[in-house]
Design a protein around this nucleic acid. Structure first.
Lengths: 200, 200
DNA sequence: TGATTGCATATTGTTAACAATTTGCAATTA
DNA sequence: TAATTGCAAATTGTTAACAATATGCAATCA
């Protein structure tokens, strides 16, 4: 299912995104195509592609002929609003597709939850954040909400730029156990409640 | 203010986007890098960049090593939901920044409204759609909501994929006159009412 | 002095050649 | 026949050279 040979562009994009989320590249910092190309041992092409994509995702700000800089995280008022939008999207997709989830999907969700649990045990911020997102993404995919994925990812990006909610790893895991249980119950209201409690 | 010399990438991106919105490239159609590069008389590089960006914007679906295809418009239930999200974003930004609008901004808004009016008179679908978006974009910019622009644009893209609300051009213009009047009144509630009535 | 011009440097934008991957079809085999 | 293998063509992925643009600084001139 998961392709092993990903393109260089994808690898570079993921690496840069991780470095931004983990704070290795602080907000406002300018990134140079040649510098990163040399660091990754590739040409400027894929790095350029990555810059373009990450600009669209909301991690980088792009200026013609002047390159990219790392974006600032949203202020608390905007953050709250972004959280609300993300909650609405997940709830909308689940409402429409809860009963479409099949056997293979449930297996995927169990697996994603297990990976989130082990990520929480390592207590590595970026790992937890990625596993967290992956779990939610699997839910959206299982409910047939792939059309909303790009939009949803952009909201997640904005949240990740100012990620600070990673005190209690045990709680994060517990919240997702609740979500999966609610999904299995088939009651839409229970799911939306669990989702809203989790996304903050 | 508006740069005259845009990059080839930007020109190509805009042209392809227009062709999708106008229905020249129907949903599901595959686009080839070389074919469009030849048509525009440029190399594959900028076309490739455009494909990447339009995929992020939600107009094209991208598959590694297999190129891009034009996306399907959202069904009516999803469309309604997307409309709601766009309304919320515009209202949120306006609520936060209504009193930040300065003299130069008002000038810009008047100008954008005038351009929308002349676009409506030509009755050219794509022209009206672009002028319509431009007016709303100016409002967001004037209210200091540029951070939400990429997100907002993606929602607009989804709406444009299934654009069908262009019967009565006179009404479209009138609605935007109402929006500008509401903005000038300074009453947030009046603006949100006008915005919600317009975005459908 | 203070503003402006012109150049050198750094950086991004574009191109065209080459590499890797996918796809369809024909030949082969059970 | 039906499935499979192995090409050949088409297409995307990557690279490196070259072009265009922006930036900072020094020289120039009012």
């Amino acid at each position: 299912m998961t392709p092993i040979n990903r393109t260089i562009r994808e690898q570079v994009t993921d690496q840069i995104r991780d470095d931004i989320v983990s704070g290795k590249f602080p907000a406002g910092q300018a990134l140079r195509e040649s510098e990163l190309a040399e660091r990754f041992g590739v040409s400027r092409g894929p790095v350029r592609d990555a810059f373009l994509q990450l600009s669209q995702e909301g991690f980088l700000a792009y200026q013609a002929n002047r390159g990219v800089t790392v974006c600032n995280p949203p202020d608390s008022e905007d953050h709250e609003f972004i959280v609300s939008l993300r909650q609405q999207i997940e709830c909308h997709v689940i409402k429409r597709g809860l009963d479409k989830i099949n056997e293979a999907d449930w297996k995927q969700l169990e697996k994603a939850l297990a990976e989130l649990e082990s990520a929480c045990q390592t207590e590595a911020v970026v790992k937890v954040a990625k596993a967290d997102m992956k779990f939610h993404e699997e839910i959206l995919a299982a409910c047939g909400g792939t059309d909303f994925l790009p939009l949803w990812k952009k909201l997640c990006s904005q949240m990740l730029l100012g990620y600070s909610r990673l005190e209690n790893y045990a709680e994060i895991h517990a919240e997702h156990v609740s979500i999966l249980e609610a999904l299995k119950s088939g009651r839409t209201n229970a799911v939306t409640t669990a989702i809203i409690a989790n996304i903050q």
